[in-house]
């Protein structure tokens, strides 16, 4: 299939803007495209896309395929899947990337099977093999305990990319690119699901994904009330509170606070893990954290294998003294 050319990114739009993951992929795929001597294209699906195509060009797209249709206002598998299939069959890219997001997770496998190819999910690194010229996708497997490197010989070669695995480019408004409009070809009868409600979990303060400081609590915190102490500490440091899976599954905190393989991916400057063991599936969400601090009474806890600094002790005793001293230092 020598005719397949180009690196295509499936874009996402959040509240009228290009999603962070889309900007990251536009930046990160440039190296892949340059290695292959191919172009970067972006697909934008939605309703009322406006000038986002020129935004995408400023952030590195050579070509933007725009599919604008009221039926694409919300993501639904039955609307996005046939549209992506149509665009990919028309443009015949060599490589197709989606974000590892609520959309990408859902869309990528179905699209891959429909196109009779394969997708490597949740890649943290993509490269081109110098000999075969195939894309190599590295992804965490076994809850983050191991890494697998995947390739496929069918086209397009597909991968989903984890948040923060790539860096966006600097905006460049002098960049040139082509915008191609494509008809969606959708009719309402194709959409078998109906979104009857959207429930937003209220976020107080800073979003976990954007926070420079994250205080994360685990099962050992012991109760929903005790999470209040973490909130106070987060407030003191201008950060956000997160949690491992057990406190979310037990309903101590909303599941939107979950950090890990199946939760949020964070990349703070400072991460403080309190009363959590440091399971691989949790740490898979913390790969971008620059400084990891651990407080746990079990000296054997896995988190100490990841942390730069740690205190072995009961958090109920360690944390108040830590917070008190911080207050003193920050005010002084």
């Amino acid at each position: 299939m020598a005719e397949n050319k180009g690196v295509m990114v499936c874009g996402e739009i959040i509240e009228g803007k290009l999603a962070p993951i889309t900007l990251e992929m536009l930046g990160g795929t440039r190296a892949l495209a340059d290695t292959l001597g191919e172009e970067v294209s972006l697909v934008l699906m939605g309703s009322g896309i406006g000038n986002l195509a020129s935004e995408a060009i400023a952030f590195g797209a050579d070509k933007v395929y725009v599919v604008d249709d009221p039926l694409l206002a919300d993501y639904q598998t039955d609307s996005y899947l046939p549209v992506m299939e149509k665009v990919v069959r028309q443009a015949a890219p060599n490589i197709l990337l989606l974000g590892q997001t609520a959309i990408g997770r859902d869309l990528a496998p179905k699209l891959a099977f429909r196109l009779d190819t394969a997708v490597a999910m949740d890649c943290i690194e993509l490269s081109i093999d110098p000999e075969s010229k195939l894309m190599l996708g590295t992804r965490p497997v076994y809850g983050g305990n191991a890494r697998g490197v995947y390739a496929c010989e069918t086209r397009p070669q597909m991968a989903t990319v984890r948040a923060k695995a790539m860096e966006p480019r600097e905006r460049d408004d002098s960049g040139k690119g082509e915008v191609i409009s494509i008809e969606s070809g959708l009719d309402p009868s194709m959409i078998r699901t109906k979104i009857v409600d959207k429930v937003k979990e209220e976020i107080v303060g800073i979003k976990l994904e954007d926070a420079e400081v994250v205080i994360c609590g685990g099962r050992g915190i012991g109760s929903p009330e005790a999470f209040k102490d973490l909130e106070a500490l987060a407030k003191l440091l201008g950060g956000a509170v997160g949690a491992t899976r057990p406190p979310c599954d037990d309903g101590w905190v909303p599941s939107s606070l979950q950090i890990g393989l199946t939760g949020k991916i964070i990349s703070p400057t400072l991460y403080i893990g309190v009363a959590l063991s440091g399971s691989s599936q949790h740490l898979a969400g913390c790969t971008g954290a620059k400084n990891i601090i651990a407080i746990n009474k079990d000296a054997e806890a896995n988190i100490f294998r990841e942390a730069q600094f740690g205190v072995v002790g009961d958090y109920k005793k360690v944390l108040p003294a830590f917070a008190e001293k911080l207050k003193e230092l920050l005010s002084g």
């Binding site: 601090i293 651990a294 407080i295 000296a299 100490f304 294998r305 990841e306 942390a307 730069q308 600094f309 740690g310 205190v311 072995v312 002790g313 009961d314 005793k317 360690v318 944390l319 108040p320 003294a321 830590f322 008190e324 001293k325």
Partner: peptide, 16 residues
């Protein structure tokens, strides 16, 4: 990992 020590857990917390 550098373990921060102290006379007691409170002390270790302050040292952290």
């Amino acid at each position: 990992c550098e373990i921060i020590e102290g006379e007691n857990p409170e002390d270790a917390g302050a040292n952290l």
